[in-house]
Design a protein around this nucleic acid. Structure first.
Length: 172
DNA sequence: CCCTAGCGGTGCT
DNA sequence: AGCACCGCTAGGG
């Protein structure tokens, strides 16, 4: 069951060589990361008030971390992650994802085992798809069991790119 | 390669 | 309550 209520968020752009990401912040931390939208994304709130100092600090950390990740280096620091939006199951999956080390991969089934729901691999895939903070919550490190790539909500192109950043080579 | 059955969570009626 | 999705998996042609 979903527990939390909608909280106001700030959306702030992160320009990168790969395009402009958008980070979203709640009052407890980074709560979302959006990939560059093909059509000149303007999802950030351009007209709204200046975010509080703490949000700006988090954003500086997140921006640096993302840019590092995109050039193949593990981020040194992350802002606090607000992963509260989601069901109990999804939160368990997202927490497990954060234990997958840089440059490593698990299968959906292994994630299912890690959260002690060994037969829920398919549901794990759905929870990965609902991950609000891709890259930092590394759902891209989860692959299908038979050397398959699995899916990726932002498109498999991005999944491949992120894996390549980490030096992960895919079978076939 | 293909197909099938079984699976668990989620979001609709 | 029921039902139709799914970023899955194992097993069998």
């Amino acid at each position: 069951m979903k527990t939390n209520i909608a909280t106001p968020t700030w959306g702030m752009p992160i320009p990168t060589p790969e395009g402009e990401f958008v980070a979203r912040y709640s009052r407890t931390g980074l709560c979302g990361l959006e990939f560059p939208s093909g059509s000149k994304g303007r999802k950030r709130d351009s007209g709204s008030v200046r975010p509080p100092a703490q949000v700006r600090r988090w954003h500086a950390i997140a921006s640096a971390a993302l840019r590092l990740a995109l050039v193949g280096q593990p981020p040194k620091r992350l802002p606090p992650l607000d992963l509260f939006a989601g069901t109990e199951f999804q939160r368990r999956v997202w927490r497990a994802l954060r234990k997958i080390g840089w440059g490593r991969t698990w299968s959906y089934g292994q994630v299912a085992e890690a959260i002690r729901k060994p037969r829920a691999s398919r549901a794990v895939g759905c929870a990965c798809g609902a991950n609000p903070i891709p890259v930092f919550v590394p759902c891209h490190r989860v692959l299908a069991a038979n050397n398959g790539l699995g899916g990726f909500s932002a498109g498999l192109k991005w999944k491949r790119a992120l894996l390549e950043c980490e030096g992960i080579r895919l079978a076939g």
